[in-house]
C-alpha cells in the first residue's frame, strides 16, 4: 500500500527528461535521484517526499534504454508511477528493478497535481483521497506478476541458475 502526493506530467515523458544524459557518467541511484526530472520540472527534487506518486498520460519513459531513469525515480522516493501507457523498455526496466508501474486509462485524468493518492498494488486499485474517486489498474500478465513476486529479474534469475 502506497500513499503520497501526486506529481502530474503529460505525454511522452522521455528518459532524457527523467535523467539527462549529462549525468549518465554516474550509476549510483542516490546520486542520479538528485537530478531526476530537472529539465522539465526543476522543483521536483526539492519537493518530492517518500511515498509520492507520479502520474502521466501516454508513452511514459520513451527514448533511451537507460535503467538510470527508473533507478532515479525509485531513489527519489517515488513509490509508483501511474500512466495511460508506458514505453516498452522503461516498462521492462521498472519491473526488473522493482519500481511498480500501474497502467490505467482513467486514473491519470482523475488525479490533479498535489492530490493525495493511495495505491493498493495487490488489488490494483488507485484511490484519489482528495476527491474520493477510485480507479482500477490493468492487471499484469501472469508472467510479469511472477517476476514482481520474485522481487525482480535478478532474484528470478538466481532461482533459475540454482535449479539448473
Amino acid at each position: 500500500m502506497f500513499k503520497g502526493e501526486a506529481y502530474k506530467y503529460g505525454a511522452n515523458v522521455d528518459t532524457d527528461a527523467i535523467i539527462p544524459a549529462r549525468y549518465l557518467n554516474i550509476s549510483e541511484p542516490a546520486l542520479l535521484a538528485e537530478h531526476c526530472m530537472e529539465d522539465i520540472d526543476i522543483d521536483f527534487v526539492k519537493r518530492v517526499k517518500k511515498g509520492d506518486i507520479i502520474t502521466a498520460t501516454t508513452n511514459f519513459g520513451c527514448g533511451s534504454s537507460r535503467e538510470h531513469a527508473p533507478l532515479a525515480i525509485k531513489a527519489s522516493g517515488i513509490s509508483c508511477v501511474i500512466a495511460k501507457s508506458f514505453a516498452r523498455i522503461f516498462f521492462r526496466n521498472s519491473i526488473d528493478i522493482g519500481l511498480p508501474l500501474l497502467e490505467s486509462d482513467d486514473a491519470p485524468d482523475g488525479i490533479k497535481a498535489g492530490d493525495t493518492v493511495e495505491v493498493d498494488l495487490e488489488k490494483g486499485t488507485i484511490k484519489n483521497v482528495t476527491t474520493g474517486k477510485q480507479f482500477t489498474a490493468k492487471p499484469y500478465p501472469e508472467f510479469m506478476s511472477e517476476l514482481v513476486k520474485a522481487g525482480g529479474l535478478i532474484e528470478y534469475t538466481k532461482r533459475r541458475v540454482v535449479t539448473r
Binding site: 526496466n93 529479474l153 535478478i154 534469475t157 533459475r160
Partner: peptide, 28 residues
C-alpha cells in the same frame, strides 16, 4: 541500448532492453 533495433536491417530480430535484462542474459 535502445538503438539495438538497428540490426533489423540485416534481417535479424534485434531489440533494446535495460542493464538488468542484459545482466540476466549474460548469466543464462
Amino acid at each position: 541500448d535502445s538503438h539495438t533495433c538497428t540490426y533489423g536491417a540485416l534481417g535479424a530480430f534485434a531489440t533494446g532492453m535495460g542493464s538488468t535484462d542484459i545482466a540476466a542474459a549474460m548469466a543464462t
